[in-house]
Amino acid sequence: MPSLPDMTTPNLSELAGKALAESGHVTVPAPDAGQEQFSEWLQRMGDNALILGHRASEWCGHAPALEEDIALANQALDLIGQCQLWLGLAAEVEAKGGDADRLAYLRDAGAFRNLLLVELPNGDFGMTLMRQFLFDAFHHTLLLALKTSSDSRVADIAAKAEKEVAYHLERSADLVIRLGDGTAESHNRMQAALTKLWSYTGEMFADDAVDQAMADAGIAPLPSTLKAAWEKTVTAVLDEATLVPPASAWQHGITGSGGGKKGVHTEHLGYILAEMQFLQRAYPGARW
């Protein structure tokens, strides 16, 4: 087994715990005041899972080998399941009626809160895997920290999802290493994917007012506090894969008005939703 930096060492939990402790509060936010931001944050969690799961499911029937087809579908199923939990809770917190499906199928692109990274087109299988790896490393670190969330509903979802995502990360990290080492062609494809996607990794760690409110309430860590652990994982894997991230890269979604967390997406999300929401939009009120 390639040697991954051990993601379950106390170091990381410590780090996450520290992030929470530093924020100083461990109380559930008062109803009303924080609830809108809480729901917004839950939608970020749910939308990342939904859109990445959707992208992964596009490979079903088209992957390079049957074994990979099946593995990727498992991952997509995990993510859809997580999305149901996060968006279900978001709908509950919002208390505007409806459920996860309402949020998934009846919001327009501007109301989606996923990172730009997860909505990018799949590209070749290497691009899909590299995106998965970069996100998994972030996702796993985040979920580990969320297991000690002050909100027990969040902690419960995180505990379930963390187990699934630990496996996603093991798989995607291993494949990145193997393909980086494999043939000249596989190396070049993985390097090209890394170079392209690197510009979309910064958004994962950019804090905003919602993040700050969640951190203040002890619900979630500030994203910026997760960066060190992410970098450690990513650097170790990329080193072993002999892949090199760009020395400096423009980071989308941080400066200016753009960014998935703010609801200003790439053009790609609109097409995803046009496909995904078609039935709900064409037959309003129908039950399926």
């Binding site: 029937g61 579908a73 859809i80 999305c83 149901q84 199928y105 496909e275 039935l279 129908a286 399926w288």
Partner: peptide
Amino acid sequence: ITRAPTLERKAILLAKVQDEAGHGL
């Protein structure tokens, strides 16, 4: 799969089509 009308239907359909890959295997 990408057009399934609810999240649950999407998961069920994906699981089914995945099974077919397994059966081929």
